[in-house]
Amino acid sequence: MNVVITGGGRGFGRTLARRFAEQGATVVVTARTLAAAQRTRDLLPDAHALQCDLTDPASVRRCAEQTAELLGHVDVLVNNGAGFLAESQADDDAIVRTILSGAAGTVLMTEHFLPLLRRSGRADVVTVVSLEAESRSDPAHIAHAAFHAAKAGQGRYAEIMSQRLRPEGIRMISLYPPDFEDGDGRDGVLTARSVADCVLFAVNQPRDCFIRSFHFEPLPVS
């Protein structure tokens, strides 16, 4: 299995890269800086690191071209990379970067990697959205409204493309988790490992099983 993961330089992207590598996949880790991608690559067997700035169309195109040279085809594309923006951090430039990296970045990655996915007999596109894209999101969440908007854009794009690509056998799978953390979990808090295992579960289903989305319950308020 050839897997490309955006935002793989740290956090959930790194966890997901590790889980795919443990399953024997060849992983291409991408990050906004090559150094960040290389740090994850160095932890994995037979992995590759590429620079990919999701806010820059030329960078996304170059990443797709380099992946084609490395692998020839892609079985799983994971749209994980997306900038987070808190209310306290918001200025005009930060708002634009957030919208571009989350919504436009997902569109650009999917569009430019579709030729490589179409060379696979088992292509999946996984998009890590967020509970914050849904109407039941927490209005008191620290995220700026631009982050909510970017995530909603990701989710809507994935829904439309799921319908359009299904006749080709390409599955679009979206995840809508609440906030989650690394580690072993505490008091029912969702962990990165659990979310990663949901991704692995979905992409390993038989090809006639189209799971469009995973909608997680938020942690109950005590």
Score class of each variant (00 low, 15 high):
M1N: 08
M1S: 13
I5V: 13
T6V: 02
T6K: 04
G8F: 04
G8R: 04
G9V: 01
G9H: 05
R10E: 05
R10C: 02
F12T: 04
G13P: 05
R14D: 02
L16E: 01
R19M: 00
Q23I: 00
V28I: 14
V29A: 04
V29F: 00
R32W: 08
R39Q: 15
R39F: 04
T40D: 06
T40Q: 05
T40C: 03
R41H: 06
R41M: 06
P45W: 12
D46K: 07
D46A: 15
D46P: 02
A49S: 08
Q51G: 07
Q51D: 04
D53H: 03
L54I: 06
T55D: 13
P57A: 08
S59D: 08
V60C: 03
V60N: 03
A64F: 04
Q66K: 14
Q66H: 14
A68S: 15
L71D: 14
H73C: 14
V74I: 15
L77D: 15
V78I: 14
V78R: 09
G81D: 08
G81P: 12
G81M: 07
G81L: 07
G83A: 15
F84H: 11
F84G: 15
A86H: 11
S88L: 07
Q89Y: 04
A90F: 01
A94G: 11
V96K: 10
I99G: 01
L100Q: 15
S101F: 10
S101N: 09
G102T: 09
G105E: 08
T106H: 03
V107W: 06
L108N: 10
L108G: 06
E111A: 15
H112S: 08
L114H: 06
L117A: 11
R118N: 04
R122E: 09
A123N: 05
D124I: 01
T127I: 11
E134P: 11
D138K: 09
P139M: 13
A143S: 14
A143T: 12
F147P: 00
F147T: 10
H148S: 10
A149S: 07
A149M: 05
A150H: 02
A152G: 08
Y157R: 08
E159M: 10
E159P: 02
S162W: 04
Q163D: 15
Q163A: 14
R164V: 12
P167C: 06
I170Q: 03
M172G: 05
I173A: 05
S174L: 01
S174D: 02
S174G: 00
Y176W: 08
P177D: 08
D179A: 12
G183T: 07
D184K: 13
G185L: 09
G185T: 07
R186Q: 12
D187M: 09
G188S: 03
V189L: 09
V189A: 11
L190R: 02
L190S: 03
L190F: 00
T191D: 01
D197F: 00
C198R: 13
V203F: 02
V203C: 06
C209H: 14
F210G: 01
R212Q: 13
P220T: 09
V221Y: 12
